[in-house]
């Protein structure tokens, strides 16, 4: 008598119940992510004003998106921003985490304080920081909206302030997981602090570094609220033909602005930009993951 393998499979109560309990999440994921995502790709091939009223036009939107100089400018600006913020956020977050795991007094208080900025929403942060920056810059008769570099570094400072605390928590978790006996062995073998940091500690926190670099890279690329609230792309470079380059406009804001400009083709072009944007962020994220993963060590 041979038992039906399917029946055997379902005999396991965990398997039987798994479907039911996975159900809500799968449904939410399908409704809130998978379906809009597929629809988004479809719409990037359409001319539309309302999404229920879309007309297929092929790849014209992608051509228009790639030809748009503002999109190209936004891409390079965003890339520069993402790289600078990636490096600074991670170096500073690691440094703070390192200091706060050395057992100094009041570590817990500092951790809380550093983490708190992360609890404030991006739009609010943008407006608050624009007031702070202008409070300083107005003494010199200028404003954050007047120069591209002010806008760039302003946004970097804002993002550092917001993100360092969050990354710090991840690094602290990583640092606390470094086995004490390994550190002790290194000390007994005569390694100095610097050697311990670079040869023992950092290789052991590689998983945290992987996560943090991934988060800060994708955050940098996806940045929207802070960008909109702080400078909204200002200052513009007025070209001689009357067009303007929004010098501090990042990709996400560029897509948003394209979508809501009044040409009848623009929603489709914005949608095409969004698809390109997704491919870019996903591709970079995966590349970075595979790169740092290779450097993780097994304890």
């Amino acid at each position: 008598m041979h038992s039906n393998p399917l029946k055997k499979y379902w005999k396991n109560p965990t398997r039987r119940w798994a479907l039911l309990f996975l159900g809500p999440v799968v449904a939410a994921f399908a409704i809130g992510f998978v379906w809009p995502f597929i629809q988004g790709i479809w719409l990037s091939l359409c001319k539309f004003r309302l999404i229920s009223d879309a007309k297929f036009i092929g790849f014209g939107n992608f051509a228009a998106a790639l030809e748009d100089p503002s999109f190209r400018h936004a891409f390079w600006y965003t890339a520069l921003f993402a790289v600078v913020s990636l490096v600074l956020i991670n170096v500073l977050a690691f440094a703070v985490a390192y200091v706060l795991t050395q057992g100094i007094k009041g570590s817990n208080l500092f951790r809380t304080v550093f983490f708190m900025p992360n609890l404030i929403g991006g739009i609010v942060l943008g407006y608050i920081w624009s007031m702070i920056f202008d409070g300083i810059l107005s003494r010199y008769g200028t404003s954050i909206l007047m120069e591209t570099r002010y806008g760039f570094w302003g946004l970097i400072i804002l993002m550092l302030w917001q993100q360092i605390g969050y990354m710090m928590i991840i690094y602290i978790a990583g640092l606390q997981a470094v086995p004490e006996d390994m550190l002790e062995a290194a000390r007994i073998d005569g390694a100095n602090r610097r050697q311990i940091l670079f040869r023992v500690t950092i290789p052991n926190v590689m998983p945290s570094i992987t996560i943090c670099t991934f988060l800060s890279l994708t955050n940098g690329f996806k940045l929207f609220d802070q960008n909109m609230a702080l400078t909204a792309g200002q200052p513009f470079l007025i070209q001689s033909d009357g067009s303007a380059i929004k010098t501090t406009e990042m990709l996400a804001l560029n897509i948003y602005n394209t979508f809501y400009s009044s040409s009848n083709t623009s929603p489709g072009v914005a949608q095409a930009k969004a698809v390109l944007f997704f491919v870019l962020v996903a591709g970079l994220g995966l590349l970075q993951l595979s790169y740092t993963r290779k450097r993780e060590v097994q304890q």
Binding site: F236, I238, S261, S262
Partner: peptide
Amino acid sequence: QPNVDDYRATLVAALNQYNA
């Protein structure tokens, strides 16, 4: 005003430079 939001945003940016 065509493409009114963009048009005005550009004008604001130019006026900012002029005001300064």
